[in-house]
Amino acid sequence: MKAKFLRRYSGIRNRGANPKGFHTSQIKFYIVLLPLIFIMLLPIVFIFSNAFKPPDELFAYPPRFFVVHPTLKNFFDLFSKMSTSGIPVSRYLFNSIIVALITICASIVVSSTAAYSLSKKKFKLKKTLFAINTVALMFVPIAVTIPRYLIIEKVGLLDTFLAHILPGLAMPVGMFLIKQFIDGIPDEVIEAAQIDGASDLLIYWRIILPMIVPAIATIGILTFQATWGNTEVSSLYLTDESLKTFAFYLSTLTTAVAGANTVAGQGMAAAASLIMFLPNLIIFIIFQSKVMSTMSHSGLKG
């Protein structure tokens, strides 16, 4: 108690890692960081600024970085327009939202049940299976696009909504992070529940899930990022235009823009890219402390 008090008010703890307050020794770090932060931030600011530019500012010469007369015109254009195949843009956005919501929920259930089993249950293959998952951390999905296509075709998922959802559900990183997090829950908690006669399902539902909320939030965010920005599923596995997602629609806008350079197209693409980015940012800001506490369990033993 006394040591803590001393540490907090003597100023010693304001030097070195994880300080409690400001100290002059930190100035040099700000000097290093701030210019870099400024550069990193530019493209992000540009997304915001560009989305609200009226057409004459989008094509102004010399080009101006910041918007002068912000307008919502680009957004109205975007949502009043049909794609070339007659699907309203709102339909793509709706698809994206539904796909993201279902995938997040399914991914949380799938990863957390498996993680509970690998962390707290005792069975022979436990170590082997976890080792396989650890190897799969380095799995690069993009490398097996073709065999995946063949499988999705064989399983009959081609041109179905499930093609968006199923392939991404087994996410080795997500399962790994939840498992590491559950490892931090003492076995005694579970043993006590078992003595009281709780079934495994009840233990998972009433004890494990409430204790791993940070890890679940993290997996939710990772899943959201992966599905929200995904264009491959729409372009490779689906031909039915009404099943495709907003990210895919945006990708058709940018390639069309590069060729035709239509005035309305540029503005719509700018508005659409803000819509792509904003949910990621908001969700991350809400859950950032949970993500950080999950990450402190992320260690990987070689």
């Binding site: 560009n50 920005g229 264009t231 945006l250 823009v257 659409a272 890219s273 792509m276 980015f277």
Partner: peptide, 11 residues
């Protein structure tokens, strides 16, 4: 957090 498609517009 930005996805490739969204950033293509910016770049």
């Amino acid at each position: 957090m930005t996805s490739g498609v969204a950033m293509a517009v910016v770049w």
